[in-house]
Design a binder for these strands. Structure first.
Lengths: 224, 224
DNA sequence: GATCCGGTTAAGAGTTTTTTAAGACTTGAT
DNA sequence: ATCAAGTCTTAAAAAACTCTTAACCGGATC
């Protein structure tokens, strides 16, 4: 999803530079060249504000208050002021971060990312993909060829292990150690049976594809 | 409301200094002197984490991931590293802010305040919704299908946890950690019984809807 | 002292895992 | 090419385990 960043910066050169930097990095931008203009331009599309503190006319502090009152989004203040006391005031007013000029582009982008992330994130997708199979580790769901497949705990762990190492052959003992977690002594056939069930379930979803390959005397691996 | 800050810092002197500074400023603190200790000490009382990056043993990056996985609160990294590239990596891993040592106490306090503030602002809207259930965390009320439901403390916490992660399967151990908060090894059946009671109460309100789904061998999740 | 809550227990139902066993396949030696 | 030994596949039966509920009990709360 594309996010819009409102740039409030009176220095035309810096404003341009920021606009180019942000657009290159996939953000939409709105440029404003004074605090008043910034407040007017601020709308509900805006996800984050970059605010230059040294604006003519009104103090940056006032502006933060008004911006936040209108629509509360993260505000990152940029300024040449190094004074720590000033930083404190800004924070206590509601600025969410502070970057001193001159700043590194990477650092600015990182701080913007961090601010936006806290709002949306948590959807870290912990998914594995192979051919037309998708495993989602956060909800333990499996989808093959568009259809949902019900896998038991061990079946899921087994398939996940293979999909983690798509180019590798997983030896039987590795599989036992990982999936069965050192409960060792399981009869040698246990794994075979589970592989068999897994293949059966996958075949029901997509009869035309072969997924798991037997490596004779060693273990199993995913087919290329 | 008093907030608890977890300090993870191997340098005893700095750890002490931080503890004194934060306590003077109205925070409760927990001190940990290694990453592993920090992860163990992290619990649902903690509102923010101060993490020293240069820890012996494990990389700070790993630790952030584990801390966030356990209970997602803002992490402010402190470190002597000035390298911008490092900052970027930390941010993309989920660090919420970065302060280089030596830092001014005022700046650190300000950044802590900013992080805690955005956190509560986001939670200000303290209701959870799922299908026809509405949970209100500020007065612990629950409404299902228009009717008010009386839930006990644990039942409420349990349902709230599931509703916080509507797409995720909550493993039993996650649920125990969150709802029972390390009140050790409650009998394995406790959770089952509470789920059963919860389902019963919800069914009385709306017999036609299924809410909680069992994920065999793993835990529970909300039905789509 | 009655009520509510949380936890424990226990029985039954349901699901998964392991074992068993028969047959098919691969390998390598004869 | 054939055979024997070992390995793999699969179905089905048996065993082990997990889940659901109802019922009970003790402690906290009112």
């Amino acid at each position: 999803m594309q996010r819009t960043i409102l740039i409030i910066e009176d220095d035309t050169e810096i404003n341009d530079m920021l606009r180019i930097l942000l657009r290159q990095n996939g953000y939409r931008t709105i440029s404003a060249f004074s605090g008043t203009e910034g407040i007017l331009a601020h709308n509900k599309e805006v996800s984050l504000i970059l605010l230059d503190l040294m604006l003519p006319g009104r103090s940056g502090e006032d502006i933060i208050r008004e911006l936040k009152a209108k629509h509360n989004v993260p505000v990152i203040v940029t300024s040449a002021i190094h004074d720590v006391g000033k930083k404190v005031d800004l924070f206590s007013l509601g600025a969410d971060d502070y970057v001193t000029k001159p700043f590194h582009n990477e650092e600015l982008l990182a701080r913007i990312g961090a601010r936006l992330r806290t709002n949306t994130e948590l959807n870290a997708n912990d998914t594995l993909t192979y051919k037309d199979i998708v495993l989602n580790r956060s909800d333990f769901s499996a989808v093959c060829s568009g259809k949902s497949v019900e896998l038991s705990k061990h079946e899921f762990a087994l398939l996940a292990l293979l999909m983690e190492k798509p180019d590798r052959t997983c030896t039987k003992s590795l599989i036992y150690d990982t999936v069965w977690d050192y409960e060792n002594s399981a009869d040698d056939n246990t794994l075979n049976v589970h592989i068999s069930k897994l293949r059966k379930k996958l075949k029901e979803c997509n009869p035309d594809e072969e997924y798991i390959e037997t490596v004779w005397g060693i273990g199993y691996r995913l087919k290329k």
